[in-house]
Nucleic acid binder design. Structure first.
Length: 327
DNA sequence: AACACACGCAACCGCCGGAGG
DNA sequence: CCCTCCGGCGGTTGCGTGTGT
């Protein structure tokens, strides 16, 4: 016998909601809040199950819902987020204010998926998108459009002296140049256009909703045996999300040198409106670490739109060690 | 005008994990 | 430890509407 659906005990209404039902539910929740959903229908005078009420409220009646079609900016953001988060529609919706997971899921299944396939991409693997992320130079305009809010962590061969990010050529979404650095405390808010000290051990400290990040590698260059195990013996899987509780990935020099374009990309949480949620660059626990030494890193916008220099360049001071770590 | 088909959207279904008894 | 309830989530379904023939 299969699982019973909600409301099996009583004969409850199903299907589309009538304006009268909407009115009752709206009036009740506005006045009392939803509290325990299972008791809502009874208290609101509805012959529905609690689940159905909850869904109706979340997807339709909620006052903060944004009506109307999705903007191309929103669509791009959904594509980016989906490439990082997968089909975690609720998490994607959390980054798009006024949009519901159901709405986004419908959009994806009915529209975006097809568009991606028409472009020759695989909506499941985002192969072409990933390629765009990994090679902005091959199609700068497209990459710029699709990835205008993505962050990349680029690993370059050479090393130089400065230990601070050069933000001189960075722009934010509004086009403001040269945002001032924010580096007054151990915890520094990380925004794509703000600088932070870098000859340190990086960590990402995130609020629960912002808990996902993703390191992405050139797939063709990826070999598991080139990856190290973390301290707990768990293999770090590239191209998969991680958060502050995920074991620390460690990369060997041999692995890094095998990356022909010498780049590692980190997808980070996106702010719904195009700016970034607070990601903290924690330099309080990093003294003495040289993990980033001997390389030049850059955090920045994967812009690629013809500008060669919109990433946040980071130059480390030392030139000795071989590993990169995430604390 | 009638029909078939495609599409978008709202809602349902079933699974899962957490809380509490 | 087991069971039940509940909320949350992602996948799927089915209806209403638009469009083409």
């Amino acid at each position: 016998m299969g699982r019973r659906s909600c409301g099996y005990k009583q004969k409850l209404r199903k299907g589309l909601w009538s304006p009268d039902e909407d009115e009752k539910l709206l009036r009740y929740i506005t006045k009392h809040g939803h509290g325990c959903w299972s008791s809502v229908p009874k208290l609101a005078g509805l012959e529905r199950c609690g689940k159905s009420c909850r869904l109706r409220w979340i997807n339709y009646l909620r006052p903060d819902l944004k009506r109307g079609g999705f903007s191309s900016q929103e669509e791009n953001l959904i594509i980016q987020l989906q490439s990082v988060l997968g089909n975690r529609w609720s998490q994607i919706a959390a980054r798009l204010p006024g949009r519901t997971d159901n709405e986004i899921k419908n959009l994806w299944n009915s529209s975006i998926k097809k568009k991606l396939m028409q472009k020759g991409g695989d909506p499941n693997t985002h192969k072409t998108l990933s390629e765009a992320m990994l090679s902005t130079s091959t199609c700068p305009e497209k990459a710029s459009r699709e990835l205008d809010t993505a962050i990349s962590l680029n690993l370059k061969e050479d090393s130089s002296k400065p230990s601070l990010i050069d933000v001189s050529s960075c722009r934010n979404e509004k086009g403001d140049d040269n945002l001032n650095a924010s580096k007054t405390s151990a915890h520094q808010e990380f925004f794509p256009n703000k600088s932070f000290p870098m000859n340190r051990y990086p960590s990402i400290q995130q609020r629960p909703l912002d808990s996902i990040a993703c390191l992405q590698f050139p797939v063709q260059n990826l070999s598991h045996d080139q990856l190290k195990l973390d301290q707990k013996g768990i293999l770090f899987e590239p191209n998969k999300e991680f958060n502050s509780r995920t074991p620390v990935p460690t990369f060997s020099r041999s692995f890094l040198s095998a990356q022909t374009d010498n780049k590692i990309y980190a997808g980070l949480p996106f702010h719904p409106m195009g700016t970034f949620n607070n990601i903290h660059w924690d330099s309080s626990n990093c003294s003495g670490n040289k993990s980033f030494d001997s390389n030049v890193f850059s955090w920045g916008l994967a812009d690629g739109g013809g500008s060669s220099d919109k990433t946040l360049q980071l130059h480390s001071a030392d030139a000795e060690t071989t590993d990169i770590k995430w604390s």
